[in-house]
Design a protein around this nucleic acid. Structure first.
Lengths: 114, 114
DNA sequence: TTCACCTGTAAGACTTCTCTGACACATGAA
DNA sequence: TTCATGTGTCAGAGAAGTCTTACAGGTGAA
């Protein structure tokens, strides 16, 4: 995993509500409104946190139709297996796109300053 | 590790500069001013990031006197070994102090609303 | 129609994080 | 003294994250 991707995953995990969402989904998949009630937060707020978790690849959402025809979006845990040590962190740091020392911003096709 | 401590560690790790600081310290201990030059950021900024890393227990700082009598603060990596899986994350989530469902804020001696 | 459930999103307020620039203090060497 | 090195800290600006409220749309059942 690249350093940039690792930062995104770690910042997605570094939040009590999102950790609680993952802990709830560890018991099984659930749809948005139900999950909001279980976790105890508003649905728009949960929606924002789920977006963050999905962008980091920690959960996977699937839009399905229930038996009575209602559209329901189910979320489930993605496979998570991160081993963080000094070595793995250092290796990830070497692949970071942003570089304060040279001013590399990380975007594609960047021109170097003369 | 408690859920609260895990969130602190993860949020400390979830930053490109702090990841780069850890990657640099993986090569050996260094003092603040030198580290700032290597990483390529200002000393006050590095100071802030080191505070964050030290608070999370990821680095250890030691104030020492150099041969010519100058006070120098050396930092080195702490032992880091975090294994993140669905199970370990769920276990950490269960020990979180804040609880949106019941309104528990997490502070000590908190009075419940009547 | 009206209600209860489901979905998504946008605006604004508020808080936290990040970063720069300036300050104060110490030492040894020229 | 002046310069170069080291330490720490503060104030403010700007960016990013967090959360609430309000709106929009959909279905099936009473």
């Amino acid at each position: 995993m690249s350093g940039d991707a690792l930062v995104e995953v770690l910042s997605a995990l570094a939040n009590p509500i999102r950790l609680r969402i993952l802990g709830t989904l560890a018991n099984g998949r659930d749809y948005v409104s139900s999950l909001a009630r279980v976790v105890g937060i508003s649905r728009p707020l949960l929606h924002m946190h789920l977006q963050r978790l999905e962008a980091a690849g920690l959960v996977v959402g699937t839009l399905e139709l229930s038996a009575d025809g209602k559209a329901m979006k189910f979320f489930e845990l993605a496979a998570i297996d991160l081993h963080l040590t000094a070595d793995t962190l250092a290796a990830a740091a070497r692949t970071l796109s942003s570089d304060p020392a040279t001013g590399t911003a990380g975007g594609p096709h960047r021109e170097e300053k003369q």
